[in-house]
Amino acid sequence: MKGRRSEINILHDILQLIEKKGGVAKPTHILYGANLSYKRMVGYLEFLEEKDFIEKVEKSGKTAYKTTDKGKRFLLEFRKVEELSSAFGIGL
């Protein structure tokens, strides 16, 4: 249960980080911002890409990641989840 919780939080953190970078972020920014090892970051990015939450784009000739509409919708849903949980004293 704890593993899944942290996983969902990491996925949310990555998406939020990309959004804070204006919707497009390079892997190095994600790596440091989300405080992950390179291997783990790649795994999460692959997962998010597979689920259509992010997509690969070119930024200054390098690979970057952009949040999709589905990813933005997930961020909003997660915010609601956080609010509802907090209202009833449930920590995420």
């Binding site: 249960m1 899944r4 919780r5 969902i8 849903e77 997660f78 609601k80 989840v81 509802l84 949980s85 009833f88 449930i90 995420l92």
Partner: peptide, 18 residues
Amino acid sequence: YYSYKTYSITAKKQHLFL
């Protein structure tokens, strides 16, 4: 309905109780 939606995202026992 919203508690279940939340549980489907978090899989936390507390959301299931709610």
